[in-house]
Write a protein that binds this DNA or RNA. Structure first.
Lengths: 314, 314
DNA sequence: GATGCTTACGATACCCGTAAAGATA
DNA sequence: TATCTTTACGGGTATCGTAAGCATC
């Protein structure tokens, strides 16, 4: 058993069992990949992959069990390298933060600025992605920190922390009839064509839920991934918008009005997540602390620990 | 980085940084060991070991961080092999249970008999050891299951479960004056020379505690590792004994009397422990279940899971 | 002087990639 | 037929063990 074999197993699962693709991803030959798999299977004395003739189709049951362990070993191999870097180049390295448009655009600029000042030699990669993609990046180690409102809570491989809470708000073109409705009601909003976020993005679930519970079926004429797009179409008069309130800027968005709406929609909580078992450099803890001062390194490390002292359920 | 290097790092720490010994333990040459360490240090760009001239003395700080990860990787490597065996030879393999004299002699015979019947082809190694040694064996994978009254609870690397509770009892030679004292009191016991367990064995701490709290300082004239030795000397009249009550057998121990003592000493709880992250074969779960029926595979697996669903302290 | 670590060097085994052949869609 | 996997084979590299050289105790 060697690391190349483990990498191959891992990548084979990731790449849908196409060994040619695996070979390319690992910068080696298909023949080598094929042989490595065979060697490992021989060594272990069982088949890891379901085959149909010469094609690989999926994992066998032992393959599935094994794959989980392999993933953890590869994570640890990355961890070893991170630890080494941590000590050889204290303030030098790379930090990958995976986050959504909304956070990258409205919440993080403040944090990134301060982080850059504190760690000028750290290469900060702000990777913009969908919530699902963020989770995937954390899982396979492509990202160190994930920040999003969706998809991060309740995954047992992650530890996540609340970053900040926010509300949706209704935006309308200046002079729109809704401006006169005070206080604003869901019923009034539901009468107009709506433009808001895609499903699975920026609290869209909460919006749908709110209307459903109140018994209204809004006419969502368009959905977008980010508030900038939504605002553009609201300005064009295609409908009224529902966006995260921090996306409205009275200075820039002269043609729009934001209507007080905190009472309409429930609070959303944006979370910061890291993968359990993923080694974090010192400056990664600093980044989290810059987001939310209460999330000190001690707090985060404490939450990452396997379990606090106790002994099972007894 | 390769597995041989990791094994060498691990073994170097275990063997007090004597590379010659490490080489012997791993059945390789000392020169190879030396080179592997150097290669890995070069690859990582830092020193893992504190050196004084040519001698290795200990781990550097990065070495310590790394060592923990290395240990987990080697554990996973063993896990992979266990998983493979699990599937290639379902009812065939080895199970190592590390336990103390008391458990091996009085609690486990019943379990072992039934286990042997159910899994005749599993090689069961019942390894008798001190509580500390049991913990060490679990930690480095030499044992699958540990059973003892001491040293297993409250270690975060373990998950432990209560197996059964028991009390100490006073034993005396037949015809001893104490037989007349009913109910038996600590004060009366403390007036006689005592023979009981060594410190750190079979609830000795609880005995000391009980006397201390009652304000007596018993005269412990002898301590032994197991009840058989204690009983031998009690028979010889060197003193009265305090042993686990299940160690007394009215049939065999004709020359001795056990005095009702449940009210004198608190309850001891013998625990079953397994190491977090150590893969257990199906029959290992069966063994635990034979010990205590409520500890089903589902229960044990549930307790071994990293954490139950939730997301850190928030 | 005994033990222990490092370096040098030659033999071996392992890993990789090319190429050809066989299987699958 | 095009795509994909396996097998065969040769070249290169890394690993291993012997042996010699040097510190440390």
């Amino acid at each position: 058993m060697n690391f190349q074999q483990l990498r191959i197993i891992h990548e084979t699962v990731r790449r849908n069992f196409n060994l040619t693709e695996v070979a390319n991803a690992l910068f080696t030959s298909q023949s080598g990949v094929s042989k490595h798999i065979k060697d490992l299977e021989d060594e272990l004395g069982l088949e890891l992959f379901v085959r149909k003739g010469k094609r690989l189709l999926g994992l066998t049951e032992p393959g599935r069990e094994l794959s989980a362990v392999v993933d953890r070993m590869l994570m640890d191999a990355r961890n070893i390298k991170s630890i080494a870097e941590q000590f050889s180049n204290k303030d030098h390295g790379q930090l990958t933060v995976a986050t959504t448009h909304t956070q990258a655009r409205y919440a993080l600029p403040r944090v990134v600025t301060r982080f850059k000042q504190a760690y000028p030699r750290v290469h900060l990669m702000l990777h913009q992605a969908s919530p699902g993609e963020i989770a995937a990046m954390l899982l396979d180690g492509r990202a160190d920190i994930g920040i999003a409102t969706e998809a991060l809570a309740g995954v047992s491989d992650f530890v996540s922390f609340p970053y900040y809470g926010w509300h949706h708000a209704v935006i309308v073109p200046a002079g729109h009839a809704l401006e006169a409705v005070t206080p604003l009601t869901l019923e009034a909003v539901a009468e107009h064509p709506l433009i808001t976020y895609h499903e699975g993005f920026t609290g869209r679930a909460k919006i749908d839920e709110t209307f459903a519970q109140a018994g209204f079926t809004p006419d969502i004429v368009m959905s977008a991934l980010d508030a900038d797009v939504i605002k553009t179409y609201v300005e064009l008069g295609l409908g009224i918008g529902i966006v995260a309130s921090m996306a409205y800027d009275a200075e820039r968005d002269r043609a729009l009005r934001m209507l007080p709406s905190d009472h309409l929609f429930g609070e959303n909580v944006t979370r910061i997540a890291v993968r359990r078992g993923h080694f974090l450099r010192g400056f990664a803890y600093r980044f989290i602390e810059l987001c939310a001062p209460e999330l000190s390194e001690a707090v985060v490390r404490g939450a990452l620990r396997p379990e606090t002292g106790s002994d099972g359920p007894f």
